[in-house]
Amino acid sequence: KNAAQIVDEALNQGITLFVADNRLQYETSRDNIPEELLNEWKYYRQDLIDFLQQLD
Rank of each mutant, 00 (worst) to 15 (best):
A3M: 12
N12A: 15
E9G: 03
Y44I: 03
V19Q: 03
K1R: 06
N22S: 09
Y44A: 07
F18K: 07
E35N: 10
Y26L: 04
A4K: 13
T28C: 03
N32D: 14
I49S: 02
E35I: 13
K42M: 15
N22E: 08
Y44S: 04
T16K: 14
Q53R: 11
R45Y: 15
A3C: 06
K42N: 15
D31C: 08
Q54V: 09
A4E: 08
R30H: 10
Y43N: 11
T28E: 03
D31T: 09
R23S: 15
I6C: 03
K42H: 15
K1Y: 04
N12P: 01
L24K: 00
D31Q: 09
L37R: 03
L38I: 12
Q5V: 07
A4G: 08
L52F: 08
D47G: 06
P34G: 06
T16M: 11
L38P: 02
Y44H: 08
K1L: 04
Q54K: 14
N2G: 11
D21W: 05
Q46I: 08
D56R: 04
D50N: 14
N2T: 14
R30N: 12
Q25L: 13
T16Y: 14
D50W: 09
F18H: 07
A4Q: 14
D56A: 13
N2F: 09
Y26V: 06
P34L: 04
F18W: 08
D47Y: 07
Y26R: 01
F18Q: 05
Q25H: 12
R30K: 10
F51R: 02
A10P: 01
Q5F: 05
E35Q: 13
N39Q: 13
L37Y: 07
L55I: 13
N39V: 10
V19A: 06
E35C: 07
A10V: 02
R45N: 14
Q13C: 05
Q13D: 05
E40R: 05
A20F: 12
V7P: 00
N32P: 12
F51C: 02
G14Q: 05
F51G: 00
D31I: 09
Y43C: 06
T16V: 14
F18V: 08
G14T: 02
A10N: 02
N22L: 06
T16F: 15
I49L: 08
E36C: 05
R45W: 14
D50V: 10
N2I: 09
W41K: 00
L48I: 13
R23M: 15
D31P: 14
I6P: 00
N2P: 12
E9S: 05
I49M: 09
F51E: 02
L17M: 05
L38Y: 07
F18N: 04
N32M: 11
D47A: 14
R23N: 15
K1G: 03
E36Y: 13
A3E: 02
I33F: 05
E27C: 13
P34Y: 04
I15R: 00
N12I: 12
L48V: 05
I49W: 04
L17D: 02
L11G: 06
I15D: 00
P34R: 04
N22F: 06
Y43E: 13
L52H: 01
P34S: 09
V19C: 05
Y26P: 01
Q46D: 13
D21G: 08
Q13L: 15
N32S: 14
L48H: 00
F51A: 02
N39T: 11
E27W: 15
T16G: 04
A20Y: 12
Y43G: 05
Q46H: 10
D56K: 08
W41Y: 06
Q46C: 06
L48P: 00
I33T: 03
W41P: 00
D21H: 07
V19E: 04
E40P: 01
E27D: 11
I6T: 02
N22I: 04
N22H: 08
N12E: 15
Y43S: 09
T28L: 03
D21Q: 07
Q13H: 13
K1F: 04
R45C: 13
I15A: 03
A3Y: 03
I15P: 00
N12H: 13
D8C: 14
R23E: 15
V7E: 00
L38H: 05
R30L: 13
V19W: 13
N22K: 07
N12Y: 09
Q25I: 08
Q54Y: 10
E36V: 10
V19P: 03
L52S: 01
L37V: 06
Q13S: 07
L55C: 09
L55Q: 14
Q46L: 11
Q13V: 08
W41S: 00
D8W: 15
L17Y: 01
Y26K: 01
N2W: 07
P34F: 04
N22R: 05
A3H: 02
I33A: 04
A3S: 04
Q25C: 15
K1Q: 04
W41I: 12
D50S: 11
N2S: 15
I49H: 04
W41D: 00
L55A: 12
N2M: 10
E36K: 09
D31A: 09
V7Q: 02
D50K: 11
N32Y: 14
Q5L: 10
L37G: 01
L11Q: 11
A3F: 04
L38M: 11
L17S: 02
K42W: 14
D21R: 03
T16L: 13
Q5S: 08
L24F: 04
Y43T: 13
R23A: 14
E36Q: 10
E35P: 12
T28K: 03
L38V: 09
R45P: 00
T28F: 04
L52I: 07
D31F: 08
Q25S: 09
N32V: 12
A20C: 11
T28W: 04
R45I: 12
Q54L: 11
L17C: 03
F51Y: 15
D50M: 11
N22A: 08
P34A: 06
R23V: 15
Q25E: 10
I49D: 01
Y44D: 01
A4R: 11
V19G: 01
Q54C: 07
N2Q: 11
V19H: 04
E9I: 04
D56V: 12
D21E: 08
R45D: 09
